[in-house]
Every structure is written in structure tokens, then in C-alpha cells.
């Protein structure tokens, strides 16, 4: 299957990656090639096969539903590109 430019543009927008026309053009054949490569999976008979999500035989343990972490907002904010009064700052969203 080959992806057209509009589809690549849509995927870039879903992935929140800005791409110039030139980049979209460059990405188009590369993505088409990879998608074409993985499409060989369609040949495999997977009737009655359950999808595998957890590869090893361990049952994840549930922990008690209690607060067991936190209380260090300063550490959380340490790497923030912009912060003020204990909050992350983002560009204005509502007028």
C-alpha cells in the first residue's frame, strides 16, 4: 500500500510533529515502503490466535490503593521549560 501526501500529513498532525512539504514528500516513500514491508503479516493465518500483550508468565501485582509518593513539587518542576508558583506554564489556551 502506498501512502499519499494527504495521509502522511494527517499522520504527522496526529503525531503532533510539524512537517514542511519537503519533509512530507521525503517521508512519503519511506513510510510506504515500511508499511508495504509489514503488510506481509496478512499472509499469516491467525484464526483463533489471541493477541499477545504480556510476553512472560507473570501476573502484575496490585498494590494497596494508598498515596505512597509525592510531596516534592520542586523536584517535579526542576526540569520544566517554564514554571511559576508551583505550576507548569503553557501558552495561553483560552482567551
Amino acid at each position: 500500500m502506498s501512502l499519499d501526501k494527504e495521509s502522511v500529513k494527517k499522520v504527522a498532525s496526529l503525531a503532533r510533529i510539524r512537517m514542511s512539504d519537503e519533509e512530507l514528500e521525503r517521508m512519503m516513500p519511506q513510510l510506504s515502503k515500511i508499511i508495504g514491508f509489514v503488510e506481509q503479516l496478512a499472509e499469516v493465518n491467525t484464526d483463533n490466535v489471541e493477541p499477545l500483550a504480556n510476553v512472560v508468565d507473570i501476573t502484575p501485582e496490585l498494590r494497596k490503593d494508598v498515596v505512597n509518593d509525592g510531596g516534592y513539587a520542586d523536584k517535579i518542576l526542576e526540569n520544566a521549560p517554564e514554571e511559576t508558583q508551583g505550576y507548569f506554564v503553557v501558552p495561553k489556551v483560552v482567551e
Binding site: L3, I17, L31, I34, V44, A53
Partner: peptide, 28 residues
Amino acid sequence: KRRIMIGTYALSSGYYDAYYIKAQKVRR
């Protein structure tokens, strides 16, 4: 970027079963 794009495509509406679920079945 290339891998994020492939992954986003494989997980996007209408393609999820054909790519991601199919791959998880072959993985089994």
C-alpha cells in the same frame, strides 16, 4: 520521527486491527 509516524499510523482508527492486533497475534 519515522518510527513515531509508523506507530501513529498503525494505531490510528481503521488500521488498529489490521496492523497492531494482527502483529500481536503473530507475536504469539
